[in-house]
Amino acid sequence: MAEVKVIGSWSSPYTRKVEMALKMKGVEYDYIEEDLKNKSPLLLQHNPIHKKVPVLLHNGKPIVESMVILEYIDEVWEGPAILPKDPYDRAMARFWVKFIDDKCIPAMWKACWSVGEEQEKLKEEAKEALKYLENEIKGKKLFGGDKIGIVDHAANFIAYWFPITADFVGLRLMTENEFPNLYRWADDYCSDTFVKENLPHKDGYIAILKTI
């Protein structure tokens, strides 16, 4: 049997999406919790470039970067598809994943921890990016159609982690009035039984925010 391990952090949206992908495929794995403030030799050995979680170890071989890991999982193991089968749809999914990672999440996260003019600039940058997602999800239950796919996993921070963080710091950004389609998608995603079972506890995540 193939040996599968995940080096991760329980509160990380990037770790959680990898764990959910493995569980969707029915892959058994060992989980290794990483102390991100005191990074282990194991993490540094297997991800010496970025020094980040998650890391997937498959028969001792490391794969890093969460979305690369998800594509690897989809290619290696049978089970529910994570990426679309159609080449065009697959290309579009990759486009939206990159857009979310490059344009949406960084601006949203930085806006939470900025002040004054810098925060206003980042809020507008985030809203401009979110408008594209708002239009993309219009008329759909999920980005993956009727089933959770790779774009939904990529946007898990937007659905769950960001609202908690924004509320914690008192930031109003992704409101229901301004982004009704995205807001509804986030609720549907987080209400999914499988997803809900694999999200970190809110109180535990807030406890971590208090240390930032």
Rank of each mutant, 00 (worst) to 15 (best):
P41V: 12
L130M: 11
I206A: 00
R94Y: 09
E78Y: 00
I49V: 15
D74W: 08
Y160L: 05
T165W: 01
E125F: 09
S191I: 00
M67F: 14
K141H: 13
A159G: 01
L43E: 00
S9Y: 15
I73W: 05
L83F: 15
K210V: 05
T193S: 11
L171F: 01
G60A: 12
K39M: 06
M174C: 08
N177H: 05
G170A: 06
V27Y: 14
E176R: 00
K121T: 12
S114R: 10
L142Y: 15
K138L: 11
G144N: 05
K138S: 15
V18R: 09
T15D: 12
E65W: 10
S40Y: 12
M92G: 07
G116H: 04
A207F: 09
I63W: 06
R184W: 02
E120K: 02
I100W: 07
E33I: 07
I82Y: 10
E28W: 10
K123V: 02
G144L: 15
K17M: 15
L44K: 08
A126N: 00
W161H: 11
S12L: 09
A166N: 08
P48L: 14
E178M: 06
D203I: 03
L182W: 02
R172K: 13
P87A: 10
K123F: 00
I32W: 11
N177K: 03
D35V: 04
K147F: 15
N156A: 09
W113H: 12
W161N: 01
K5G: 01
S9L: 14
M67I: 13
I148C: 03
S9Q: 12
K140P: 06
R184T: 11
Y72A: 11
L57A: 06
D188T: 07
K39V: 01
E75Y: 08
M67V: 09
F95M: 08
K202H: 11
F99D: 00
K138I: 05
K141D: 13
I206V: 13
A81M: 06
F168S: 03
Y189C: 02
P54Y: 04
Q119M: 04
K121S: 06
I100F: 07
Q45M: 15
Y72I: 06
V53Y: 00
F95Y: 14
P41M: 14
V68L: 15
H153D: 14
K147V: 15
Y14P: 04
P180W: 01
D102L: 03
V18E: 05
E124R: 09
A159H: 01
P87E: 07
K131F: 10
P163T: 08
A154L: 04
N38C: 03
T175Y: 04
H201M: 10
Y14I: 06
Q45I: 14
P84F: 14
V169Q: 05
Y88Q: 14
M1A: 12
E33V: 08
P54H: 08
K17E: 15
V195W: 03
G145W: 13
G8V: 01
L122E: 03
R16G: 08
M20T: 09
M24G: 09
E28V: 14
G8S: 07
W77I: 04
D35Y: 07
M67G: 09
E71H: 02
D89R: 07
P13E: 15
